[in-house]
């Protein structure tokens, strides 16, 4: 109820501001944007663009997860790799997304740039979270696995995965948001066909501000749905490890 009241409050502010400005090209009214969003949602282009943009986000995100976990595990196991990769990952974190997008446009085809950008955004987050999780594995429990003669596989299943999961989940939730923003930004700059980014770019090009707002609103809605869905999946998996989703595991004593 409170959330709804807050939303209504800001829509009223928006409506008031658009009435004062009174130029649709500068600030369209909420009613005009909602009407345009409804009209767009009845077209196949809208759904196709949304689906393909979402597919690019998920592809980049999954690749980021995979490489992030592999890199973190390798650097934990071989400290030299940590020293080698650490500056690279710091550089990725510090570099503006636009620089990567432009570079990727030179290296790759425009359809691959959003995937690559999402991938680059996810990797450092997952890497550092999983690495921290591995470093924080309870040494007392490691001794328990040694004393009771656990195999390597059993140690991974019983100790390592449950210990690292809370850190992984927390990184993945941050990563999905970053991947979505970076991927849409890349689409705006490299305009692959049937993409939300291209639609945003076209709206700006033809000064269709209502369309620009409608597409942005749909990106926000899809991003929230995706994040909620992801958190739901995590809470289901979290219960399996008795970690309560993204909360960190308690101590062993």
């Amino acid at each position: 109820m409170r959330t709804l009241a807050v939303i209504v409050f800001w829509i009223l502010i928006w409506w008031g501001a658009s009435s004062i400005v009174n130029r649709e090209v500068m600030l369209p009214s909420p009613i005009r944007v909602i009407t345009r969003l409804f009209e767009l949602s009845l077209t196949s282009v809208f759904w196709l663009s949304m689906a393909l943009s979402l597919a690019r986000v998920i592809a980049g995100f999954m690749l980021g997860l995979l490489f992030g976990v592999v890199l973190a595990s390798a650097s934990y196991k071989v400290p030299v790799l940590r020293y080698l990769f650490s500056p690279l990952l710091t550089a990725i974190k510090a570099t503006p997304v636009a620089s990567f997008i432009i570079l990727a446009l030179v290296w790759l085809g425009k359809n691959s740039v959003p995937v690559f950008t999402a991938f680059l955004m996810v990797i450092p987050v997952i890497w550092s979270n999983v690495y921290t999780g591995l470093s924080n594995i309870d040494k007392n429990l490691t001794e328990v696995t040694k004393v009771f003669g656990f195999s390597r596989f059993k140690t991974i299943k019983i100790l390592i995965i449950p210990s690292v999961m809370p850190y992984f989940f927390s990184g993945a939730v941050t990563g999905i948001g970053l991947a979505w923003k970076a991927s849409v930004a890349a689409e705006v700059l490299c305009t692959p066909s049937n993409s939300v980014g291209k639609m945003l770019y076209d709206s700006k090009l033809y000064l269709e501000s209502a369309d620009l707002f409608a597409w942005t609103a749909s990106v926000i809605v899809f991003s929230i749905i995706l994040e909620r869905l992801f958190k739901y999946l995590i809470s289901k998996l979290g219960k399996k490890y008795n970690t309560g989703g993204s909360n960190f595991a308690g101590n062993s004593n």
Binding site: N140, V147, I158, L159
Partner: peptide
């Protein structure tokens, strides 16, 4: 040799149930 240990601290796997903590070893 096959050794079993009871540590001074209980050192249980918090994400396993009581029975699972026993059967896992």
């Amino acid at each position: 040799p096959a050794i079993s240990v009871v540590f001074q601290e209980t050192r249980l796997f918090e994400w396993l149930t009581v029975k699972e903590n026993c059967t896992v070893v």
